[in-house]
Computed example of a mutant assay.
Amino acid sequence: MSLHELNTFAGVTATPDVATQGFVFNHTMLRVKDITASLDFYTRVLGFSLVEKRDFPEAEFSLYFLALVDKGQIPTDDAARNQWMKSIPGILELTHNHGTENDTAFTYHNGNTDPRGFGHICLSVPDVHVACERFESLGVPFQKRLADGRMNNLAFIKDPDGYWVEIIQPTPL
């Protein structure tokens, strides 16, 4: 589909209003059961850096903000880091409700079973084959391997809560 067709798709104008210039898609929030397992997955397995942590003891939850950035890019001053974090795209906010990790029966709906809703987040990697081999060696569960189905250029892995993470690469395989 051409850019012109995209901009007039379904008879509507898809051209952003000038008033939206400067808007940034900043973050997506996922609720997680076990923050230790989730931080390990998103930092060690997927390469995110923990940028900010906010605790709300009276409400019994904490927020963890992660980004795919070099740690050297993260401002050390709290106010500067907060402003920087709110201005960049692609932040992942993990919300942990205290105590859920101790309840063996507790789970979050991953959005991919009925009733369907939320689907997945996506990471672009330099080499999808190398990334998937690494995920396999780390014991990361797959929802869809590269060889599964007709779409052999992408994979889906699962985080500790069963949320799907699509893995793609920007260049053709």
Rank of each mutant, 00 (worst) to 15 (best):
residue 124 S to I: 03
residue 21 Q to K: 15
residue 155 A to W: 03
residue 135 F to G: 05
residue 12 V to F: 12
residue 76 T to D: 15
residue 43 T to K: 06
residue 150 R to F: 11
residue 51 V to R: 13
residue 163 Y to Q: 12
residue 15 T to S: 04
residue 2 S to Y: 10
residue 76 T to K: 15
residue 37 A to P: 00
residue 46 L to S: 04
residue 41 F to K: 04
residue 124 S to D: 09
residue 150 R to A: 15
residue 98 H to Q: 06
residue 119 G to D: 14
residue 165 V to C: 06
residue 37 A to Q: 11
residue 60 E to L: 12
residue 166 E to I: 12
residue 95 T to A: 03
residue 76 T to I: 14
residue 12 V to D: 13
residue 141 P to M: 08
residue 160 P to T: 02
residue 71 K to Q: 14
residue 79 A to R: 06
residue 157 I to P: 02
residue 131 A to R: 01
residue 49 S to P: 02
residue 75 P to I: 07
residue 165 V to N: 03
residue 62 S to L: 08
residue 25 F to N: 09
residue 77 D to Y: 13
residue 14 A to P: 00
residue 133 E to K: 12
residue 19 A to H: 13
residue 140 V to P: 01
residue 153 N to F: 06
residue 56 F to Q: 07
residue 153 N to P: 00
residue 53 K to N: 07
residue 172 P to M: 05
residue 37 A to Y: 00
residue 169 Q to N: 03
residue 108 Y to A: 03
residue 27 H to F: 03
residue 161 D to W: 05
residue 91 I to T: 05
residue 122 C to N: 12
residue 80 A to Q: 15
residue 81 R to C: 06
residue 172 P to R: 10
residue 172 P to I: 01
residue 26 N to W: 12
residue 78 D to M: 10
residue 1 M to R: 13
residue 74 I to T: 12
residue 60 E to C: 07
residue 91 I to A: 02
residue 156 F to M: 01
residue 97 N to L: 08
residue 139 G to Q: 05
residue 97 N to A: 04
residue 16 P to D: 11
residue 58 E to K: 15
residue 74 I to P: 05
residue 139 G to I: 01
residue 18 V to D: 12
residue 128 V to W: 08
residue 24 V to W: 08
residue 145 R to M: 07
residue 67 A to H: 04
residue 118 F to C: 08
residue 87 S to Q: 14
residue 99 G to L: 04
residue 52 E to A: 10
residue 29 M to A: 11
residue 36 T to D: 14
residue 134 R to G: 03
residue 21 Q to D: 06
residue 24 V to M: 07
residue 61 F to C: 05
residue 7 N to V: 09
residue 27 H to V: 00
residue 47 G to M: 11
residue 133 E to C: 03
residue 21 Q to G: 09
residue 172 P to C: 05
residue 59 A to Y: 11
residue 12 V to Y: 04
residue 58 E to G: 12
residue 76 T to E: 15
residue 147 A to G: 13
residue 118 F to T: 09
residue 17 D to V: 06
residue 37 A to E: 14
residue 65 F to D: 01
residue 25 F to Y: 14
residue 157 I to T: 03
residue 66 L to H: 04
residue 108 Y to I: 00
residue 117 G to I: 00
residue 134 R to K: 10
residue 39 L to A: 10
